[in-house]
Every structure is written in structure tokens, then in C-alpha cells.
Design a protein around this nucleic acid. Structure first.
Length: 423
RNA sequence: GGUGGGUUGCCCGAGCGGCCAAUGGGAGCGGACUGUAAAUCCGCCGGCUCUGCCUUCAGUGGUUCAAAUCCACUACCCACCA
């Protein structure tokens, strides 16, 4: 299947400039394209994943990705999709985030092999040396304030309390990035989430004005869950790609717990399996949703390409062991050890309190001891998969498997490992 | 600049001197059903050394035996008029 048709089938296209021309470019191969990521946190999150995957698909089809980390734009703040001014982050902090995000990108795209190996860019490289005067004369001159005001991102903000000159300038900076990459790298396509359409088109316009050439824009749809919420947010916040911020186990579980109604779309968006394979999987899911085969497949694949195959397999095993019917006492030490390795854990010494409620509160899985007590009262408290009914229940020596590990559970799926030091 | 209205628990939103940790809805959590899904139903939903105690109704100070509720000032928001 041709790349464009595949993207259409996967639901990965929201808007684009001249479709026929872009299609032709994509069929030809060797197209340089860029996607910007602003460092607003130390890690990318699941919300960035959809576009990352599309980048990868293009690379696999022979195109050349230029992931750009917004060292400059990250200092200014994108008003798109926000009804409030952002608080500016410290330069040194942003610089640190840029580094971390660079590394994440480097792990996902191929920067090593072939003529279409990815190239990292940082817009600070061309923005920092530019003086304010040069910027105003060379770049600013090409922008009409009337058009800038008409952009959704700006007009929405004018309605809701205003916008600073800083954020108002964002679209100019981003357009300038596209122009620079067009000049430096021959970049002819910028992609992004659908909320980036205005910013991207600003760049296309700038290139046309300054260089007299036409460049392309392509956006992908924002993924929205069936329950109407934005995909990628949980009650406890964003799901990060960095395993130190969202554990591999939590990451895997996030995908495993996908709403049935969303599973088809998520597999289309995030899986690299072929259309044939996916359609077979959809059929299986339809005939036997309880088996959750599609969910497992999605969780395993995504965890695998973000955290590594080895980790993904380990986490999958852990998930199976901990949720299986198997008696925890029957797990051998090594299996148990690896199963709990990704769980939130509480480490205690021999002398510390062993009251279930105390330990649960310490784990952070519940907000307070009162909340932990409530869980016990409501019958959702377990120790090594056995329900406990007494609010003052304490762990005993016998509860520590292999003398040091106990598994507490709250409700159906929140597990906590208690590790007791052996001395 | 003038006048009027508002600021309540994670969010929305009642309460307008004691019966208020504060009605109701949403979110969230637990249980039942099932499949570590959804829908539905039931329960919970400030904290703690938990038959009691402590801290909350923008902030500060005051009136009162008693305040989220009254008064004063401060901050922020909104509406109408200029």
C-alpha cells in the first residue's frame, strides 16, 4: 500500500496543503521533513507519540526526518490550544530539557544508517545569533498583523484575557524555523498535530514570500478517547515516555487498559504491524473481546519500541504473574522478583511499622491514611492477593515471601511491593 | 473613573448567623457484574492518635455565647455605565 493511502487508512491525516503535490512527493521518496517538539517538560509524553510514529513511518518509507527541539520556541511559549499565558521557564532548565528530549528522539528514529538518516535540529542555533533588529527587518517585515490576529490560537486568546507580545510572536518564530530548515536542509514538509496548522502554514507562507517556493504542511488529528477525554492523560497526570517518570509497568498497563471502543484506532495509530495483521487482530478482538488480545498486542508493541523489547517482555510477564490466578506463594523467587521490579515500592527496615494502612499511605497509591482505611472498610484491600478486612491489620513475618517481599493491592489493579531489609 | 455582582472542598455549584466538614452534579475511589474494558447498580469521597479531635468556605481584622453566612479593609474576577 502506498504511504499516503496507508496514512489515510490509519486515520493519521487531518489536513494538508495541496494533496496531489504532496502525495507525489511522498511517492517519490527522499523528502526531508520536520516536526518540532518544544521542551515544556523533561520528557516527551504519549501525546507526542502519534506524530513520532508518523515520522517513523515516513522514515521507513525512505524519507528523511528532521526532529527539531525547540530550544528557542520553548523559551517563548506556544499559545496554541491554551486559554492562558504560559509561565516562562528558566533558560537553564529549558536547556536541560532540550538535552533529555534529544536523547529520547535519538532512541526512536534512525540517526545512523542510510541516506535518509534523521538529523536533529535545535532552533536556538539560528535564533540566538539573530539580533532583534535583524529579526524585525528580515523576518517580521513579511508578516501581516492582520493575518496573525486572525489565527485561532491568537483570536481565542484575545477573547479570553489577552496575550503577551512574547506569545503573539510565537508563530513568527516557528515560521522562521521552517524557512531556515528549508534553506539549510532542503526541508519541504512540516508536520504536527492539528493544533499546529496555523503555525505551520505561517511557515509555508513565509517560504513562498521569501524564496518563492512552495513547501508543504501536514497535520495529524488529535486523538480523542471515546469518553471524550484527551488521550494520554490519567488521573495522576501525563503518561511520559521517560521510564523514570512513568515506569515501564505503568506504561504497559496504560495501554493494556485501553477502552475497547478505542482499541482499533489506537492500534492503527501506534502499531507498525501491517494492515493485514491488524485486520486479523481486529477480527479476533471482535469475536472474543474478553481475551484482550488486541490490548496485549498494543501494550507490548508500544512498550517495546519505547522502552526496549527486553523491558517490554519483562513487564508483560510481570503483569501476567501479578494478575494471574496463580498464588503468589507459588511463584519462584526470580519470577516474583522481576514481577515486582516495576511496581511502586515501599522499603522498610525490620523495626518499622507493618500496619497495612501505614504502608499503603507511604507508597503514595492512596492520598492519606484515611483513604487507605476507607479502602479496607470497602473491601478493596489485599495482602498477597488475600483480602484483609481489619483496618489495623499488620503484616507478619509469614507474609513476607522469601522473607522479604510482600505484595499489597488496592482494588483491582493498584499493586505495591513491600520490601523488607533482611538484616 | 462610576455603580452593582462575585470569590465555597479536585471541578461546577447550593448554602446567606447555630441543626455545616457544609445540599446537588461531575471527576475520582471501593464493591457487585464481566474481561486488569465499557455500561449499569450499590457504597465512599478534608485530615488524624477516629464513638472523639483538628483544619477548611479568597486574605486580614472585627461583631457575637456562636460566622461560610454580619461588618471593615485588602487582593482578584465579572457585569453595566462613562
Amino acid at each position: 500500500m502506498k504511504l499516503w493511502d496507508e496514512l489515510v487508512w490509519r486515520g493519521s491525516i487531518a489536513q494538508s496543503t495541496d494533496e496531489a503535490a504532496l502525495k507525489a512527493e511522498l511517492d517519490k521518496g527522499g523528502l526531508s521533513f520536520y516536526v518540532g517538539f518544544d521542551p515544556t517538560a523533561p520528557s516527551l509524553h504519549i501525546g507526542n507519540l502519534a506524530i513520532l510514529v508518523v515520522m517513523k513511518r515516513l522514515q521507513l518509507a525512505g524519507h528523511r526526518p528532521i526532529p527539531l527541539v525547540g530550544g528557542a520556541t520553548g523559551l517563548v511559549g506556544d499559545p496554541s490550544g491554551r486559554n492562558q499565558e504560559r509561565t516562562l521557564n528558566e533558560e537553564s532548565v529549558v536547556a536541560g530539557w532540550v538535552e533529555r528530549i534529544r536523547n529520547q528522539l535519538a532512541g526512536f528514529l534512525d540517526f545512523e544508517t542510510g541516506r535518509n538518516r534523521a538529523v536533529l535540529a535545535n532552533n536556538l542555533d539560528w535564533t540566538a545569533p539573530l539580533s532583534a533588529l535583524d529579526f524585525l527587518r528580515d523576518i517580521g517585515k513579511h508578516f501581516s498583523v492582520n493575518q496573525m490576529l486572525a489565527k485561532d490560537s491568537v483570536s481565542a486568546r484575545l477573547e479570553s484575557g489577552g496575550i503577551s507580545y512574547t506569545e503573539f510572536s510565537y508563530q513568527v518564530l516557528q515560521a522562521f524555523d521552517y524557512l531556515e530548515l528549508f534553506r539549510r536542509e532542503g526541508c519541504l514538509l512540516q508536520m504536527g498535530g492539528s493544533d499546529q496548522w496555523g503555525n505551520i502554514v505561517a511557515g509555508v507562507d513565509l517560504i513562498r514570500r521569501v524564496e518563492g517556493k512552495s513547501a508543504h504542511a501536514l497535520t495529524i488529528p488529535l486523538i480523542v478517547k471515546s469518553d471524550g477525554n484527551k488521550f494520554g492523560k490519567t488521573a495522576s497526570g501525563s503518561v511520559w515516555l521517560d521510564p523514570t517518570m512513568t515506569s515501564s509497568y505503568a506504561f504497559f498497563q496504560f495501554f493494556l487498559n485501553t477502552d475497547d471502543r478505542d482499541i482499533v484506532q489506537l492500534l492503527k495509530s501506534y502499531s507498525f504491524k501491517s494492515r493485514e495483521e491488524l485486520e486479523a487482530l481486529f477480527l479476533e478482538h471482535e469475536s472474543n473481546p474478553g481475551a484482550r488480545k488486541a490490548h496485549r498486542s498494543l501494550a507490548l508493541e508500544v512498550t517495546s519500541y519505547i522502552h526496549g523489547e527486553e523491558t517490554a517482555l519483562r513487564v508483560e510477564k510481570a503483569s501476567k504473574a501479578l494478575f494471574g490466578q496463580a498464588d503468589l506463594h507459588e511463584l519462584d523467587e526470580k519470577t516474583l522478583e522481576s514481577a515486582i521490579s516495576e511496581l511502586p515500592r515501599v522499603e522498610i527496615s525490620r523495626s518499622e511499622s507493618l500496619i497495612w494502612v501505614d504502608l499503603m499511605a507511604r507508597s503514595g497509591v492512596v492520598d492519606s491514611k484515611s483513604a487507605a482505611r476507607r479502602v479496607v472498610k470497602e473491601g478493596g484491600a489485599y495482602l498477597n492477593n488475600a483480602k484483609i478486612g481489619d483496618e489495623s491489620a499488620e503484616l507478619t513475618d509469614a507474609d513476607f515471601l522469601y522473607g522479604r517481599i510482600a505484595v499489597m493491592r488496592k482494588g483491582k489493579r493498584d499493586l505495591v511491593a513491600v520490601i523488607r531489609s533482611t538484616d
